[in-house]
Structures are given as C-alpha cells and as structure tokens.
C-alpha cells in the first residue's frame, strides 16, 4: 500500500515505505526535500521541525506513516515563487540567520506559535523556540526575527 500525504500542497504517493522510517528520512531521501535537517536525531534540537496539520513536530520522532492522509509543510512550501514568506522575511531582516542549519525548523516552529499568538510576547517566543537549538549565535536575533515575522504576518509595515 502506498503512503499518501499532502506535501506543501501537493499530493505525494510513495511505495515501499517501511514502518520504522521517520518522516525526516522520507522527506530527505525519497522526496528530496532538504530543508528539514537531522541535527540530533532524538528530538532535542528541532532542526527537523516540520508542520503536521499546521502543528510543529520533530520529523525525526515521527514515523512517516503517521503523516498518512495529513498535510505536511516544510520550509520549501513557504515562499511564493521569489516572494519570501513573511516569517522568512522577518528572520532575514533581523539577521536571525547565521549558518542556516537550524533556520527552517525555527521558522516552522515560529509559524505554529504565531498561529496561536499573533502578537507573541518575548516570553512566549522564548518558550516556544526552546526546542530549536542554534549553535552559531545567541537567540537574541531569533527572538527579534520571530517578532518581526509576526508583525509582517499581521500586515503591519516593513519599517526597520
């Protein structure tokens, strides 16, 4: 039986996916979606975060079959052509990205947060992002990035 789910708005159907395969492996190895990263592989770092029906999950801890019939969103699904998603723009405009390895996971976690709290406080941001580790830099600019992205999503201007 093929594994079917929606990936960034498109139906995918895969044959021969073993039960133990993680969603992360299937995304990266079968579907060539390299945005989600494997950092730790055990749910500590959040680099593999994707949205499953709009909610952030660690794709390294999710069996691929758990996604059956559901909607998976990876960072590749956010931009519209050349137009970055407002949260991506927020991260870019605040310099919240250094090497970029953790960024896709961070952006997706941030999207789950702002869905619940369109105007998140610093404390809400820090708590929500605590499962996404960055080893390049501090988290100061990440907090600004999420706040800026949330602002863009609310349609409130692009001033610096």
């Amino acid at each position: 039986m093929p594994l079917k789910f929606t990936l960034n708005g498109n139906q995918v159907s895969l044959e021969g996916v073993p039960g133990e395969a993680t969603l992360l492996e299937v995304l990266r190895q079968r579907l060539d979606m390299l945005g989600a990263k494997e950092g730790c592989g055990v749910g500590e770092c959040g680099a593999c975060t994707v949205l499953l029906d709009g909610k952030a999950v660690d794709s390294c801890l999710t069996a691929a079959w758990q996604a059956a019939g559901r909607e998976v969103t990876t960072v590749e699904g956010l931009a519209q052509g050349d137009e970055l998603h407002p949260m991506q723009k927020g991260f870019a405009d605040t310099g919240a990205v250094q090497c970029g390895f953790c960024t896709p996971g961070m952006i997706l976690t941030a999207l789950d947060l702002v869905e619940q709290a369109p105007e998140p406080s610093e404390q809400q941001i820090r708590r929500a992002m605590s499962g996404n580790l960055c080893r390049c830099t501090g988290y100061h600019d990440v907090v600004r990035g999420v706040r800026r992205g949330a602002k863009y999503l609310r349609g409130e201007g692009e001033e610096q």
């Binding site: 749910g43 959040g46 499953l52 660690d58 801890l61 758990q66 976690t109 789950d112 499962g131």
Partner: peptide, 8 residues
C-alpha cells in the same frame, strides 16, 4: 520536552 514533543 519541547513544544514539538508535547504535540505528539
């Protein structure tokens, strides 16, 4: 855990 772990 984290928000991601709490989700599942």
């Amino acid at each position: 855990g984290s928000m991601q772990v709490r989700q599942t």
